[in-house]
């Protein structure tokens, strides 16, 4: 794989997506939602205005966990099940399928990141103007984590698109994946946890977090915001299990990286054997 075609494909994908109304619409909606949540989160502040940054961010976190996977899946599926004629011309060029996938993924990611970053920036400015810059680094780290989540679901959408090939089928599958990771997985994990007991239960619970990129980002964000204490003793146990909070974040980020790379790598492998 060489860099140059990846770059050119990424740039074209970005141009297409930025000119696409959807990127703008997503940016505006995301910006309004994030800002709104942060804003109303602050209005609802209690009588002494404590925990500003962490709580606002925790509310934003909730939104991020719902919206970003959905948007990434939708945009990825849309792009990767795009017009056949366009794909045929592209893949007939002297490029590898891995280069095409990487390029398109990066271009898409850049466009999603652009809209997300503007949303986060607006909210960030607002939060800082209200409660000062003391949580800024955590907020930046949180933004990076959210971008990571976007990439993971982009990667998953590529796999889905590769497997399903047809647009409608891919969308159905993507929607299922969204539902699964955002909701069903956790319900399942909670259910199984209740069936287990003692140390098996805890081990399962800790490990199950890594099986869902949404949980990975949720837990890592809360640790970064230094609000892992809201998990109470469970949080302490988790941190001890993972080896301290720096180590925990490292492990979680590694898990997120794996989640970002593996589906895409699998998609490349499948696509190599696929016909157009």
């Amino acid at each position: 794989m060489t860099f140059s075609p990846v770059f050119h494909i990424a740039r074209q994908e970005l141009t297409v997506n930025v000119r696409n109304k959807w990127t703008l619409i997503f940016a505006v909606i995301f910006g309004i939602l994030v800002t709104g949540i942060a804003y109303f989160g602050m209005i609802a502040e209690g009588f002494s205005g404590m925990q500003n940054f962490a709580r606002s961010s925790a509310s934003v976190l909730n939104l991020v966990l719902y919206i970003i996977p959905l948007v990434s899946l939708a945009m990825g599926t849309l792009s990767f099940t795009g017009d056949k004629g366009s794909a045929e011309l592209l893949f007939s060029q002297p490029v590898l399928s891995s280069e095409v996938i990487m390029g398109k993924a990066l271009g898409l990611f850049a466009s999603i990141a652009l809209s997300m970053a503007s949303g986060f920036m607006v909210a960030g400015i607002m939060i800082i103007s209200k409660s000062g810059p003391q949580g800024l680094t955590s907020y930046l780290a949180f933004t990076v984590l959210s971008l990571g989540l976007a990439f993971v679901f982009l990667s998953l959408s590529i796999l889905v698109a590769t497997l399903a090939r047809r647009k409608s089928k891919a969308f159905g599958f993507a929607l299922f994946l969204w539902f699964f990771f955002v909701l069903f997985y956790d319900i399942l994990a909670i259910g199984i946890t209740l069936l287990l007991s003692g140390s098996t239960m805890n081990l399962f619970l800790f490990l199950s977090l890594f099986g869902n990129p949404v949980d990975v980002v949720r837990v890592a964000s809360l640790i970064i915001f230094d609000t892992a204490t809201i998990f109470g003793p469970a949080g302490a146990a988790l941190l001890r299990f993972l080896g301290g909070s720096a180590m925990s974040v490292t492990l979680l980020v590694c898990a997120l990286l794996l989640w970002a790379i593996l589906p895409m790598a699998l998609a490349v492998k499948i696509m190599r054997r696929q016909d157009f």
Binding site: V16, R19, G85, S86, E88, L89, S92
Partner: peptide, 11 residues
């Protein structure tokens, strides 16, 4: 040149 060539509309 594919049978039915398509290009992104907004380029």
């Amino acid at each position: 040149l594919p049978q039915r060539v398509v290009f992104p509309e907004n380029l």
